[in-house]
């Protein structure tokens, strides 16, 4: 899978990597059990400090998206089981509060917003 990193973006680089890996899993571009580059390799390929990639991998590991083995490196969790719990729904709601508010004020209709969500959901399997 290709990661697309934008250095000038408002979104911090570690967040971009994390978002794209999770989306890659949802889209099926990253298969379960697929190897990811080592911390040093990925950092070097992007051209950033390896602490940034370390942070991403640790967060992904804590949330259950990847597993890190001392020997075989980093891979997408082969028995991926991330559930939605109350906590997650709360944070999702928090995110949608701002997103919907801005969309509403910019004149995006409710139908258009739902259509966009459906389009995205249809890509996942």
């Amino acid at each position: 899978m290709f990661l697309q990193i934008e250095f000038e973006s408002d979104i911090p680089i570690y967040q971009q990597i994390k978002n794209q890996i999770i989306r890659g899993i949802a889209l099926g571009e990253l298969k379960l059990g697929e190897d990811l580059p080592s911390v040093r390799q990925l950092a070097s390929d992007i051209g950033i400090n390896f602490h940034t990639v370390n942070k991403v991998y640790n967060q992904l590991k804590q949330e259950g998206w990847v597993v890190i083995h001392r020997k075989s490196g980093v891979m997408i969790n082969p028995d991926l089981n991330v559930y939605n719990n109350k906590q997650y729904i709360e944070s999702l709601d928090e995110l949608l509060k701002f997103t919907t508010a801005e969309a509403y004020l910019r004149g995006v209709t409710k139908e258009k917003f739902i259509e966009l969500i459906e389009e995205n959901y249809n890509k996942y399997f």
């Binding site: 899978m1 990811l36 580059p37 390799q41």
Partner: peptide
């Protein structure tokens, strides 16, 4: 223009 760096996560393997 959006300036982007592209990285492949799989080629090495």
């Amino acid at each position: 223009k959006k300036q982007i760096v592209i990285v492949d996560t799989s080629h090495r393997y």
